[in-house]
Design a protein around this nucleic acid. Structure first.
Lengths: 363, 363
DNA sequence: TTGTCAATAATAAACGTTTAGGATTCGATG
DNA sequence: CATCGAATCCTAAACGTTTATTATTGACAA
């Protein structure tokens, strides 16, 4: 046995056959007799043969893995997302490669470019990205004709040619905003991540509209996408700004965490001194005191949808190869699927951190 | 441009060179003049050449990716672990492939075997496993001479030939147990995951010893490794068993979550009605009320250590190319690094859920 | 007998790299 | 002038697969 495992040739030699015969036998293709096939399979099993997909993909011009682009995996949201993706991939035997863009905690465009280079070196079959990516990165992906699905962030300003599946953030903002309006809050503070994740714009603008409708003032505080930078930013704001919010809206999970540590240190009571609501659900939200009112997105579902779609895109691209086939002689209509733009509804979970006394309705 | 990207041949053709020259130029090796090298690099850049690592690995007999074996990614612990691994991998340009064993939430040996098959098909350079794996799986890895590092679970009964880096669970149990003893709890209930993750044994036996030392009764309730099965198991226990615990110890994070939902539904107050402590820290532990007393393991550090070590193992294996194995050591300095068995200390974080009134010391 | 067909098998090329072994130049040395 | 050495570049084989093409059978029909 070589250092690299048993090869087709090893089996062929053992049986005085050609690699051709062994390949056909193992892949259950025509061109080999029942007896030879049986013999091959027997030896293959004995020797513990495991095919080398890289060699296969190289020859066939296929690519079997999918890369997931993330940025700083501190957000538990990624877990559900990955689970959702894996739930689909496992069935199909696809592999998921994880690549994190934020090398030392901070995103930079050059880091993004470098990482993409890295990812492309592995010739993935497709890419799922949690970031919108830079213009040049997207251009590169276009040139490579790479199947791409953006999740939870729409790709830059030109959406048209890329697929994405996101939370319906407009609707989510609306739901949240309306509820705040019902509470008659007058000074909203939205603490939110930078616009690399451009779901930010939708969340922000939706909230601005809602505030305008009910005549509330709104301020936006931008921070990094992690709890520490959030805490620092919020501490700075509360210490030095005259704006005294009566409700804080956390743009996502790590940010909520940062806010809560800041408030806890200041002994500010939620919701009595200050109300607090958030975007994105998380497993502990229902066990905190007070329980957190938030709009819950379906990360797992988004992951699963994105996984299904990327596989469809990959299939489509690879089927459009030669028309050749011995396995499935059925000539399908071969309809081209365009990019999909799918939004998944988020649900408002009303609990106590907004000031509601009971699980439903405003105070 | 082919569908698969620019190749060395494309560049060679453009410049009327051989692929050889182009390869040498791009990899910055001798055998090519300054001027040709410059010309090659120019064209490569223009055309956006990106090497195909799979083809390279195939030729060189190397393997560039590392597979991480997980089982049901519901545990936020995985996030830190992955971050830790990535922090090392990014620098070295290694890729991390994630493979989850628990397809539909439940572990099974056949699923494990199938997944391992899958992983081996990609010819990873090494494997990091969060599970101890079955005897046959470990045997297979031995046959493949696969570099393996186990994290947080030691490999089966025979540890000798595999590396692992885990929390010092014996010490962790001791710390926790001693603290409980200080509280004079007399009826401990340990709720813990199955022994597929065999850190369980160490945690359990450490606690049993601590209980014995202080004359406390201890019961162990096994549940699945997720919050729902935990809640079900605990509900069943509390409803039907005569054993009335005065403290519950959660074996890990999802289990703690399950316990807390169960207690919340029963309106059992922590720590007044019942104390609660846990293994493994998580970001919200300090914001729950009461704050949770627990032993915190350094997942990020474990991930980083494991990553460093797997890379060292891979390097070692690949450097040992020319000299054939298991014969005489032909006088080379080539020192072989044996498997490492590293434990990382966990720290006890005393908070209020155990009944302590102040951040330090027992009540 | 010959010819045809189908089934089975082998040969060799291809995928995108790396690399051992030559070939060609040019200048310098004996 | 012949020989050497170094530098530059090429040819071709190799990695482990798949697959188009070709060769070898044997059976059966004419």
């Amino acid at each position: 046995m070589k250092h690299t495992g048993v090869t087709l040739k090893d089996i062929a030699d053992e049986l005085n056959l050609s690699v051709y015969a062994v390949s056909r036998a193992i892949n259950d293709l025509s061109g080999v007799s029942k007896t030879t096939r049986a013999a091959v399979l027997k030896v293959a099993k004995e020797k513990g043969y495991i095919p080398n997909v890289n060699a296969r993909d190289l020859r066939k011009g296929l690519h079997h893995s999918v890369s997931l682009l993330t940025a700083g995996m501190s957000n538990p949201y990624y877990l559900d997302l990955i689970s959702g993706i894996e739930s689909i991939f496992q069935i199909r035997g696809e592999n998921l490669l994880i690549s994190d863009i934020a090398i030392d905690g901070h995103y930079s465009e050059s880091a993004e470019s470098l990482l993409l280079q890295h990812v492309l070196e592995t010739r993935p079959g497709g890419i799922i990205s949690t970031l919108g990516l830079s213009d040049s990165s997207r251009q590169r992906l276009r040139e490579w004709k790479m199947p791409v699905v953006f999740v939870d962030s729409t790709p830059g300003s030109t959406h048209e040619d890329f697929s994405y599946v996101t939370t319906d953030n407009k609707d989510a903002s609306n739901k949240l905003g309306s509820h705040l309006a019902g509470h008659h809050f007058k000074r909203w503070l939205l603490v939110i991540y930078p616009s690399v994740w451009n779901s930010r714009y939708i969340r922000e603008s939706g909230l601005r509209q809602a505030a305008a409708r009910c005549g509330a003032a709104i301020r936006v505080l931008e921070c990094g996408n992690d709890q520490f930078s959030t805490r620092k930013a919020l501490d700075g704001f509360l210490d030095h700004d005259k704006f005294q919010p009566d409700v804080i809206i956390a743009g996502n999970n790590p940010i909520l965490l940062g806010i809560m540590t800041s408030l806890q240190a200041r002994a500010i009571e939620v919701p009595d001194d200050l109300a607090l609501v958030a975007f994105d659900d998380f497993i502990w939200s229902d066990l905190l005191k007070p329980r957190i009112t938030l709009v819950a997105e379906d990360s797992y579902g988004i992951g699963a949808k994105a996984a299904e779609h990327i596989l469809a895109l990959i299939d489509q691209k690879q089927d459009r190869k030669g028309g050749d086939d011995d396995s499935k002689p059925d000539g399908k209509p071969q309809m081209t699927m365009g990019p999909i733009h799918q939004t998944i509804e988020a649900s408002l979970k009303i609990r106590e951190s907004c000031g509601c006394r009971y699980p439903t309705g405003a105070a």
